[in-house]
Design a protein around this nucleic acid. Structure first.
Length: 921
RNA sequence: GGGCAAUUAGCUCAGUUGGUUAGAGCAUUACCUUCACACGGUAGGGGUCACUGGUCCGAGUCCAGUAUUGCCCACCA
């Protein structure tokens, strides 16, 4: 006998291992069929599973399991990202404990350590993903730094370079003067800094006075937080719309302390209302100034060394530390009469995340990809709808970024990553040549040959050249993910069959980093989109709406949730509480929904099993689950028809919801079917027959329950794979231990079956009405404070004969359920002089003999009459609108006509009622 | 500063082309430990759908404006 409470732990472990070992997740092109493929957004190899992954992967798994059951050839490809900075930092931190720096080990030894780390700990997240139940094809697991992906990366780099789309150029990076290395943006911590704004006068060239020590009459005033970079100024800038400085157009100013003449340029970057509205431009020491300099073709003067001391171009400050220099320059400016005044000023200043020294903006040479030519087809693809965002509004975000796209800086001064396949003459590098000769090739051998040709030195050996020290941005491998993982650049069967992939599921935070770039790479290298639909889901937040983060300590751990509630519960609850439209707030208790649901299903199965054990061999569960069963129409009751009909309508709704990625609605639909329709209504209804003497009827009920429940399990399987699989076997639905995950997705009954069994919307509506009638009857009792034990007399009045007939045929049941000694059923409006309650749609009226509130009923009927008349007016207006009648589809017009007739009948009925109530009053 | 979204029950959220009585889960109240399930059942309470105005026979839904909140982008030299 099954236990009262479902114990998911053992079950989930058992079935995952079973699925994996039976190759249930594995996909092969040779199996044919229509392909459905998704590549997983590869989590960082350093990562541990968080709620974001749980949501993201649950969505993908629901889609893939559903499609697989539909018979598609499904591939969901897993893998991880080598995550350059993150991984390197983790390993460097572990070196810290040994008081080692990576430089002490050297590049090769250090990389060995990282690989060791990856082998040891890199599997953490993929093991955690298994606990979620992901049906990813683990035989195809990939890593962005594995041999295949690395080959693709190198090939792409060389191709883009040869196409002229990759170039090497100057760029401002975050520079730590202590570690003497570039830092990525996320390695820079911004802290509030209590500093100053120095207001400095720059004399305008041509001014009448120019003697040092005297105030200039004609000058511009510049405000700066970094006076020490002044010797590197190569312009001052104003906003072109700033009327105050219109007279400066085309003029030059004198750079204080140096005597150099620098131009006044106009640039939108300048904020009119900040400081004086004039900015000094120091292209070598500020990223924005660098861009201004680029736009205006300004010279770049670097005044600082890598260690934060001033260099020769700073003039007399050479050798000073940058902060000493700041004080000296301010002193000199004051002495020269250039310093106007100083204000206190707070701003954000970047600090190194490791040594907390102020990060310097430093000019360096970096590699770039020209993005404009790549962006054009990618923009067109979304415009034409070849690729679609779901929800659609993200297209705006995408266009906004793509149309203003900047070149992509792809080089990183790290060791862990794909090394840039550029090769130099070793002699030139050692001599620190300004612009060393280089070649870009896929292999060192090819590079040597190319270099020999380029330099005309046939005697050049492999020792004479060296590879670029930098590695590529991690995204430079992930943007190839949809095809590099399928074997590109080889033209594999996988690639032919599964590319383009179908859906990409991700959160909005990597639309730029990843999604947009994959689209560009897809079109450029494959000539085809990487995927058709982009499903953007929200972010999982805590119950106060904050992002989950380690530092806030508000993270929910999916593994903990799986431990306390089960993976099924986590998945189902996530699906139920998240929509694509908004972020979701979650708290631990939310996951009880899924757990309780699993228990409910478990117990429904237990109930059925108990009854099957009492009737051994009465049905063939497997055959019924496979759709091979007959029902005797003579034995069918309306409640049977109702549940069969409801199952079919839920199936249709689920398909529609899943097609449109409304996973939440799908979850709700199956939840309602199983809990409310099947357990609360049908199982309760069936109890009387199951304990009855009629064996044919018992068999019929058990057949029907098996048919409905097995279909419901299938509909639920994408959401709750484990418990459905367990019950599938417990109930003997799969022949010879076949898995539910490969069972065919349910289909609607044939028209013949529907007809033979008398299934129709009318029957379903009748049962709904009956439920409502019983509820209303109970409510009436409580309204009039009548004890449940007391027998009363009900009057039921229906609008149509058919409903009256059905009620009459069930008088005994109704009497029992309403605890009535007498029930009178009539048709039409005359009888009802003492109405008390009205069921839905105004087609059934129920009253309790001797209990009337005619005044209230009169008021309500009048309200209803007003509404109905208004509605009728609208329909009439529509029908008298010529353009509607002539242009709208005939079916719609007909519908309106029918509605009109119906409304007129309703009004007539209500009018009679009104009169009856008025008389009663 | 630019853009996007949200505002519906105590809480978290649905509400698909405007349509008759606005739904769910949790929480809550009463009753029920009835032989599938108290992680349960039955019945109930709780909403001027942020505000103002507009269009319409009819607005949670469409339009305009206001307020509040959140996010993204660009960021003040």
């Amino acid at each position: 006998m099954m236990d009262k409470h479902y114990d998911p732990k053992a079950v989930e472990e058992k079935w995952y291992a079973w699925w994996e070992s039976h190759g249930c997740f594995h996909a092969e092109p040779k199996d044919g069929g229509e392909s459905y493929s998704i590549v997983i957004p590869p989590p960082n190899v350093t990562g541990i599973l968080h709620m974001g992954h749980a949501l993201n992967e649950t969505i993908q798994d629901i889609l893939t399991r559903w499609r697989r059951m539909q018979g598609r050839n499904v591939l969901w490809l897993p893998g991880t990202d080598h995550a350059g900075i993150a991984t390197q930092s983790v390993v460097e931190k572990s070196l810290d404990k040994e008081h080692l720096r990576r430089q002490d080990l050297g590049r090769e030894k250090f990389l060995e350590r990282v690989w060791q780390w990856k082998e040891k700990y890199g599997g953490t997240i993929v093991h955690q993903q298994r606990k979620l139940g992901n049906s990813t094809d683990w035989q195809r697991e990939r890593f962005t730094f594995d041999a295949g992906c690395s080959k693709a990366v190198t090939k792409v780099f060389v191709q883009l370079f040869k196409e002229g789309l990759i170039y090497k150029g100057p760029y401002i990076v975050n520079w730590c003067t202590h570690h003497q290395t570039a830092l990525a943006n996320d390695e820079v911590e911004h802290e509030e800094n209590h500093g100053h704004l120095w207001y400095i006068r720059y004399p305008v060239v041509g001014s009448d006075k120019g003697v040092s020590g005297e105030p200039y009459r004609d000058y511009v005033m510049v405000a700066t937080t970094r006076p020490e970079t002044l010797p590197g100024d190569t312009a001052v800038a104003v906003n072109p719309k700033d009327e105050r400085y219109a007279h400066l157009r085309g003029k030059k100013v004198i750079l204080p302390l140096t005597g150099r003449e620098i131009p006044v340029v106009e640039d939108d970057y300048v904020e009119k209302d900040f400081g004086t509205g004039i900015v000094k431009i120091t292209p070598a020491h500020d990223p924005n100034d660098f861009l201004v300099g680029k736009r205006h073709d300004l010279p770049i003067v670097n005044v600082m060394n890598g260690d934060g001391t001033m260099n020769a171009d700073s003039g007399r400050y050479v050798g000073m530390d940058r902060f000493v220099c700041r004080e000296e320059i301010v002193k000199d400016l004051e002495a020269g009469g250039y310093l106007d005044h100083i204000e206190d000023y707070d701003n954000q200043v970047g600090h190194c995340y490791r040594c907390h020294k102020v990060v310097e903006s430093r000019l360096s040479k970096q590699w770039f990809v020209k993005m404009k030519p790549l962006a054009e087809p990618a923009i067109a693809a979304v415009r034409t709808g070849e690729i679609q965002f779901v929800p659609k509004r993200w297209e705006n975000v995408y266009f906004n970024w793509m149309e203003n796209i900047q070149d992509w800086c792809i080089s990183r001064q790290l060791w862990w990553g794909h090394r840039i396949p550029a090769y130099y003459l070793k002699a030139e590098i050692e001599a620190k040549a300004e612009n060393p000769v280089f070649v870009v090739e896929e292999t060192p051998e090819a590079a040597l040959a190319a270099m020999r040709e380029k330099t005309g030195n046939a005697a050049l050996t492999a020792e004479g050249i060296c590879q670029d020290e930098d590695v590529l941005d991690t995204w430079f491998s992930s943007w190839l993910w949809p095809f590099s993982t399928l074997g590109w650049p080889e033209q594999t069967d996988d690639l032919k069959f599964y590319y383009p992939t179908c859906d990409l599921v991700t959160a909005q935070d990597i639309i730029f980093f990843w999604v947009a770039r994959m689209i560009m790479a897809g079109y450029h290298f494959m000539g085809q989109p990487p995927f058709r639909k982009i499903i953007i889901h929200g972010i999982v937040r805590d119950d106060q709406g904050r992002k989950m983060s380690k530092s806030l300590g508000n993270s929910l751990d999916p593994l903990e949730l799986i431990d306390s509630y089960s993976a099924d519960a986590l998945r189902f609850s996530l699906a139920l509480i998240t929509s694509l439209e908004t972020d979701s707030r979650v708290s631990k208790s939310k996951f009880e929904i899924g757990r309780n649901f699993a228990t409910k299903i478990w117990n429904a199965a237990r109930f059925m099993q108990m009854n099957l054990e009492k009737n051994p061999g009465i049905i063939d569960a497997h055959a019924i689950a496979a759709g091979d069963f007959t029902l005797d129409p003579a034995l069918l009751r309306d409640d049977d028809r109702h549940v069969l009909w409801t199952l079919q309508s839920v199936l249709a709704t689920m398909n529609d919801h899943l097609e449109k990625y409304r996973l939440q609605d799908g979850a709700l639909a199956i939840y309602d079917l199983i809990w409310n329709k099947f357990c609360d209504w049908y199982l309760e209804y069936a109890k009387q027959d199951l304990s009855g003497e009629d064996e044919a009827r018992r068999k019929q009920v058990l057949t029907l329950m098996t048919a409905v429940f097995s279909s419901a399990l299938k509909l639920l399987h994408p959401y709750m794979p484990f418990v459905t699989e367990e019950l599938w076997h417990q109930m003997g639905y799969g022949k010879d231990g076949e898995s539910i995950m490969l069972a065919p997705w349910p289909t609607a009954y044939t028209p013949e079956q529907n007809q033979a069994w008398g299934l129709s919307q009318e029957i379903a509506t009748y049962i709904d009405n009956k439920r409502e009638l019983i509820t209303a009857g109970r409510a009436l009792r409580s309204d009039y404070n009548i004890a449940p034990s007391k027998l009363v007399t009900y009057l039921i009045q229906t609008v149509d004969d058919e409903t009256a007939r059905r009620f009459t045929s069930e008088l005994d049941t109704l009497r029992q359920q309403l605890r009535a000694e007498e029930i009178t059923i009539t048709v039409g409006g005359e009888h009802l002089a003492m109405p008390c309650t009205v069921c839905k749609q105004g087609t059934i009226y129920l009253s309790l003999k001797g209990q009337v509130d005619a005044a209230a009923e009169l008021e309500r009927v009048r309200g209803e009459l007003v509404k109905t008349r208004g509605f009728l007016k609208g329909v009439e207006a529509k029908l008298s609108n010529e353009s509607f009648v002539s242009r709208a589809p005939e079916a719609i017009v007909q519908q309106q006509r029918e509605k009109k007739v119906e409304l007129e009948a309703t009004i007539e009925r209500l009018t009679k009622l009104e009169a009856a109530f008025a008389a009663a009053q």
